[in-house]
Nucleic acid binder design. Structure first.
Lengths: 212, 212
DNA sequence: TTGTGTGAATCCCTTCACAGCG
DNA sequence: CGCTGTGAAGGGATTCACACAA
């Protein structure tokens, strides 16, 4: 059942969302949950929930629903949250600092083990337990600290170079905040977060809505 | 031809991306582009580019390609960037400040006309030309300054309430950074940016890749 | 000849509907 | 009986392939 099928990006997003909902349900003292309820608190249908989960096994009890606790664990495993991810943050600007302080980060198993920047003013600055290191140390930090993920919070012009250096030094995935499409070798996943693109999607939809 | 068909979200994202590529091409002195080239510099196919554009009209010349300048204008109009969007930022934390300073913002026609926060320490603080106002003034600011869009950079617990107040006061769209699914009336577009979700998508894919 | 615009074919995702298990 | 798990149906979106315009 946990077949090596291709799982779509939207499915993964939904799984991530289910996990969040489960945590809320658990906080409210819920012990079991139906696909119906899970769907209502996401923005999906019950059939979708069941289909999503069915790609990875059958975790529910017919006539009963899912055990909140068990499903939560399963989702954590599926999403790869049952291990620690070691993250390096490249770019100690505002986006970088916003991420660094994001409370859910650590909670989800992401540990920012290093920060680098090119700005001499910033190098040496202390953020919590970390000290900002010069960008030249990128590769050595990745290797020494066994970094898995890199967060690119750098200007568009620097993103490609940093991505290449990081991949060469051994990172396995990239979260890219720079508004460019970066090229990486096959097999290195990249997720892009592009703030302007989100806003543009919004203004497009508003225009549409008002055209009726 | 600019028919009122349903345009998918992914199409809009691609349009937004084409626009960015066109700007780069123009900066390099390019005057015309083919769907082929546009596709290569995005992450799509030529057929996809043509199909996307065909939803809104036929802007190209057969055998020649598209005029960079004209297509850029068309895309700007389609995406609703040919007007000024007035934005209010709710939450003057790090994410808020990152957005506020995002250089592409103003360039794309988004003007952050007001900032509010609940923290007495922050109220009165000056950011560029703006002064942070108390959260109680949300509605009056939206009305007086004719705000179209609200950016929610607040904790999850506050997001729903702020969204409702904003919609009641007249905003037409919401960019939500809080990690919750907010409920809004039909016809008010919401775009969600969820940083943890992006990271989870990444770790999922890395796990998958290594399972091979 | 080149490269667009577009029906047709294909693929993938979502929804339906129900068999089957607790 | 209630709710899951899943084959089948349906619907969208992507890709193909080619007529046609410059």
């Amino acid at each position: 059942m946990p077949l090596s099928r291709r799982i779509s990006d939207s499915t993964v997003r939904r799984l991530s969302h289910y996990l969040r909902v489960l945590e809320l349900i658990q906080a409210d003292g819920g012990v079991t949950v139906s696909s119906e309820e899970l769907a209502k608190r996401g923005h999906t249908t019950a059939a979708q929930v069941r289909k999503d989960l069915s790609h990875f096994g059958s975790f529910g009890k017919r006539g009963l629903g899912y055990s909140v606790d068990e499903l939560k664990d399963r989702l954590r495993t599926i999403l790869g949250l049952d291990r620690l991810w070691r993250v390096i943050l490249v770019g100690a600007g505002r986006i970088g600092s916003a991420l660094f302080d994001y409370p859910d980060f650590k909670k989800r198993g992401y540990d920012c083990v290093a920060i680098v920047d090119t700005d001499p003013e910033k190098i040496g600055e202390r953020w919590g337990e970390r000290v900002i290191r010069p960008a030249e140390e990128l590769e050595s930090l990745i290797r020494e600290l066994n970094v898995n993920l890199v967060i690119l919070a750098v200007p568009a012009s620097a993103a490609q170079v940093v991505a290449e250096r990081s991949v060469n030094a051994g990172v396995k995935g990239i979260l890219n905040f720079a508004p460019v499409q970066i090229q990486v070798p096959e097999g290195i996943p990249v997720e892009n977060v592009n703030l302007v693109m989100e806003l543009e999607a919004l203004s497009f939809q508003i225009n549409r809505a008002s055209e009726t």
